[in-house]
Design a protein around this nucleic acid. Structure first.
Lengths: 121, 121
DNA sequence: ATTGCTGCAAAAAATTTGCACGAAA
DNA sequence: TTTCGTGCAAATTTTTTGCAGCAAT
C-alpha cells in the first residue's frame, strides 16, 4: 500500500490547483510552496508511482518533456495552440474509432491531440 | 541549403527500410551498417534537421523515447499493442474532428494513437 | 518497532555542443 | 577553395538510484 505523506499530497495538490498538465519541474516549483525542502527525486518517484496507480496521466507532445495531470476528471483529450503553445483540455471525444482498427486488431483505448489556433490567438 | 552526405542518406535509408517509427539508437544501429564510423551526434543532428524540414515526423508515446519516421507516406496514425508494445501504422482517419473544437478554436491538425491488442497477441 | 519514503548527492540515460578535420559544392 | 557537416569527447539536461535518517503505520 502507498503511504500518505505530505510530499505526495503536495504533488497531488499542485496538479489539482494547476488544472492543466505540468512538467516535472513545474510540479517541483508548486510543491515547494507546501514542502520547501522537497527534492526533485521525490517528485519523479511520486509521479511514476501515481501514473502506475492510474491516479495520473502522462501527457506527451512531440519535442517536449512529458507533462502530468490528474486522471480523475474523466476521459478527455488535448489541444495545443500552434501560436501560443498552450495546452487545453477537450472534453469531447470522437465516436467512430473502433472502426479504424485493421482487422484482427482490438482497440481498447486512445489518445488524441488536436493542433490549431486557440480562442485568443 | 542542406548538403547531401552519405550519413544523411544512410539515416533516410534506415527509416525507409524499417518502415516503422525508430528510436534514435535504432537509427544509429541501422545506419552503422552503411557508415560504420557514424556517431550518435550525427544521428541526432540529422533527425532534428529533417524534422524541421518536414521530411520526418516525430512519434511520441507516453513513457518512451521519441521515435522518428518518414513523413512522405501521407497522413496516418499509430497503434500500439499493449501486449507486445509494437507500434503499427493506421492508414484510416476519423472524420468528425473539427466538431470537437470548443467554439473560437480552429483545428488545423491532429495526432491519434490507438492502444489495444494486435493481430498476433 | 517496523518498514517505506524522503532528501541529498552521485549515477545513469538522453541529448546537445565545441572544435579540428574531412568532404561537398 | 570555401564552407558545411562530421566524429569525437565533453557538457547539458533529464531521470534514476543508493543510502542513511525520518516519519507513517
Amino acid at each position: 500500500m502507498e503511504r500518505s505523506t505530505i510530499q505526495r499530497s503536495a504533488i497531488h495538490d499542485a496538479l489539482k490547483r494547476a488544472g492543466r498538465p505540468l512538467l516535472a519541474l513545474e510540479v517541483l516549483e508548486l510543491a515547494c510552496e507546501a514542502v520547501p525542502r522537497i527534492g526533485i527525486a521525490t517528485i519523479y518517484r511520486n509521479l511514476k508511482t501515481m501514473v502506475d496507480e492510474g491516479l495520473l496521466r502522462q501527457v506527451v507532445l512531440p519535442g517536449e518533456n512529458p507533462r502530468f495531470e490528474l486522471s480523475g476528471h474523466g476521459h478527455h483529450h488535448h489541444f495545443q495552440c500552434k501560436q501560443c503553445q498552450k495546452v487545453y483540455d477537450i472534453h469531447s471525444c470522437p465516436t467512430d474509432l473502433a472502426a479504424l482498427a485493421p482487422k484482427g486488431f482490438t482497440i481498447e483505448d486512445h489518445d488524441l491531440t488536436l493542433y490549431g489556433r486557440c480562442k485568443n490567438c
